[in-house]
Simulated scan of single mutants.
Amino acid sequence: MEPRVSFITLGVADLATSLSFYRDILGLVPHKVLPEVVFFNLGSIRLALFPRDLLAADAGVADDGGGFRGVALAHNVRSPAEVDQLLARASDKLGRLIKSGRPTSWGGYAGYFADPDGHLWEVAWNPEFEII
């Protein structure tokens, strides 16, 4: 396998609500909006929003929605102030603040929000990683 992630697909309860959150609140520009899926370009990776029940059926697994899935997506920003700004914007409407921005043990600054379906996003400023 070549070392690459091409798509991140999130199973969502309400496609219109999730589209609104990612487009209107987080500012992502949809690449393609279809009746059953929405795609966003994130550099070399694409984010897809797909109805949760259809995603489960496509994968052939139960749609039980059980608790923490052991996954968090991360978005790095250029400063601690940007961490706080994005956390506030994401949790102001449809999202939920999980952990406010704070200094980290690795010398950065980070916090977490959850999207309307509970998918965790870490927002981090890391002085060791340049934003490219």
Rank of each mutant, 00 (worst) to 15 (best):
A48V: 11
I98P: 02
G95L: 08
D64C: 06
L86T: 02
F50W: 15
A81R: 15
I98Q: 03
A74Q: 12
L55E: 00
G70K: 13
G95W: 12
A88P: 05
L54K: 15
A57F: 00
L94Q: 10
V71C: 04
F39C: 08
L87Q: 08
G60Q: 03
D84F: 01
S100D: 11
A88C: 00
T104F: 03
S100H: 13
V83G: 00
F68M: 12
L87K: 01
I98R: 08
H75G: 04
A88N: 10
D53R: 15
D53H: 13
A59F: 07
L97T: 03
P80G: 03
L49G: 05
A62M: 07
K99A: 11
N76G: 12
V77I: 03
D84A: 06
L73V: 00
A74K: 11
L87G: 01
K93I: 08
S105Y: 14
R78W: 03
F50S: 11
A90S: 08
V77F: 06
E82K: 11
P103E: 05
V77D: 10
A74R: 13
R96G: 07
F68L: 13
F50Q: 12
R96V: 13
F50H: 15
R52Q: 15
G43A: 07
G66M: 09
S105P: 14
L97P: 11
T104K: 09
I45N: 02
N76D: 05
G43L: 07
L97C: 08
D53Y: 09
I98H: 10
T104G: 09
G101S: 08
